[in-house]
Write a protein that binds this DNA or RNA. Sequence first.
DNA 1: TATTAGCACTCAAGCTTACGGAGTGCTATT
DNA 2: AATAGCACTCCGTAAGCTTGAGTGCTAATA
Lengths: 353, 353
Amino acid sequence: MRTLDPKTAEDRKRRLLQAVIYHFMRTGKPVGSQVIVDKYNFGMSSATVRNMLMDLEKEGFLIQPHTSAGRVPSDKGYRLYVDSLLEVQSLAAAEEEGIRKQYAARTKELEDVMISTSRMLSSLSHYTGMVLSPRLDKSLLRRLQLVPLSNSQVLVIIVSQTGLIRHKVLQLSRSLPAERLSMLSEMLNARLRGLPLSEVRTQILHHIEAAEQEHSEAFSIGRELARDAFDLKTTEGDLYVEGRENIFSFSELGDFGELSGLLKVIEQKNLLTSVLEKTMKKEGLSIKIGAENTRPELRSVSLVSNTYKLNDHTIGVLGIMGPRRMEYGRMIALVEGVTKIVNQMLEKMVSYE
Amino acid sequence: MRTLDPKTAEDRKRRLLQAVIYHFMRTGKPVGSQVIVDKYNFGMSSATVRNMLMDLEKEGFLIQPHTSAGRVPSDKGYRLYVDSLLEVQSLAAAEEEGIRKQYAARTKELEDVMISTSRMLSSLSHYTGMVLSPRLDKSLLRRLQLVPLSNSQVLVIIVSQTGLIRHKVLQLSRSLPAERLSMLSEMLNARLRGLPLSEVRTQILHHIEAAEQEHSEAFSIGRELARDAFDLKTTEGDLYVEGRENIFSFSELGDFGELSGLLKVIEQKNLLTSVLEKTMKKEGLSIKIGAENTRPELRSVSLVSNTYKLNDHTIGVLGIMGPRRMEYGRMIALVEGVTKIVNQMLEKMVSYE
DNA sequence: TATTAGCACTCAAGCTTACGGAGTGCTATT
DNA sequence: AATAGCACTCCGTAAGCTTGAGTGCTAATA
């Protein structure tokens, strides 16, 4: 049995890589040939292992921090590990049920779901949990309500089909009696319901123009509505982040500057939002390992995220950010499990309509 | 002129302390006797300065990190500095006008004011800006509106006199036609307006009981309203924090653990809220230096905060968190200036009513 | 021909030593 | 009371040394 079947040899190399990555994930220290021999039963000497490690390094799956140190997985190594070596676990039924219960009953509106979800992701992973909520302008209008606050102020309430609730105070240039306002509210509500919010703006103007003859005051409020309340530039998806403090435990306390850069990205909503939005481009699970993230500040972390949807339309992303050496298996299972639950909750929420 | 008037001597010691603190604030390094002689014109030799420094240390105003190092101000030293040495500057009129403009026109509701204010504090101080918004249960009800979302769901909108807007989705146990709901909405609105929100809950039940004979359905929704929407335990003052990332530049990159603890406090809303609430107990400017903060994690930072009010009632706090060696003069002026502006804005907002 | 044992080599990390500099406290002097 | 002078302390840094884990290569082996 001297000569090995090349397939077997290749297979063994894979298993070795897997062992190295696995060990590194647990310890965080470069892995040497001796440890492999000691702790994993490959039935060969350290010298042989070393030869194979050299091969793996030449192929780019491993990296030596410096000559005569053990090996550390490269991004490419992790990638292979994630893509093929890993048998994807799924959340145990009991575990999933547990999560479901945690959501409790108080998730009637979308914001609650978002908050609970980011908490859940963070506390179960011990990393940082993130959820990007649906963009308002992509949602359909479920209800529009004008509430008089004073002679010259109106509170505009916008409820989207997805359960997002937004409000905005409008300063009127001319006053409007309460009864007229509530009529207007009903009128607009009836005509605009079900429209995408991005179209509401132009539709308001349209309807208002038609009504202009009848009630000139409607014209002015309509213009203000369209301009201020439905100016959706500012209504990009909201970001919910939980467990930022965990980056201290997982950032490998490398150097200070790196940590600081990471913090800066995590603290700034717009930066993190744009990162997440990128992963939303294609539906489904996304894993970004180290430098696969475009932002250089994120080169030492990995992102596991998934899109969630409603009526077969992708409407948002959720996921976790952790160290590159995370237990991808568990994390993938977690993110997928939570996504599943969120999808179901959203569906249920809309069906109440 | 050998023998000095004791008053003059004391005065000179004060000025020396001031110089040490001033210098330390700029450089962050322990201050030695030589530097004082070189850069500040006290007209005496380093030996004399050393003697005085020893006195100041014995009195507890200065600390030596270790034998044969320069001196560093103690909390007590900063305290004296702040309390008496410091001539409080006020914001230049032009500067104040600049801030006022920054607030822009889009601050019609309270939340906008809070957000803008925390941003303002952070960006002008380069530290971390914080605002604690009024507690909802302490405010008066300005408007209550029920909006039908579906047969079994009602959106409850609560607008406080201070301009706080809260919403809550209510799941009804029995359905209610839209017209009846809007009548109920108007009825409650008329009767409850102006009441403190903390009383609204019991009042709802009261009014509902009276109406029970007429409309039994009102009873059930009223109970749900009182139980869910006006359960104000969860409505403690909201916290707005901006510029967390700045703690990296001011935390003197001491040791890692300290920074991590600080981060943890800053990240957790409830912790930071309770810290700020403490400073709210007595009205007016509050300066907490280092260990004067009860939380041990905050022992290396200082807090400059001020209460803001409406109708002579303290309703919230705003302030900054920075390094102990901050320029207290400028920071105090900043916090006071911003408070003044916020007070005025709040007054104006309520007057729209 | 794949594997192994053996060996020389490398490098990071930790420890010791040396030393310059900043700063002090004390004492004798003015 | 203020100062000059001096011995001393301690930090920080750099240089040298040792240790140990780990490597790559080569020659022997089954």
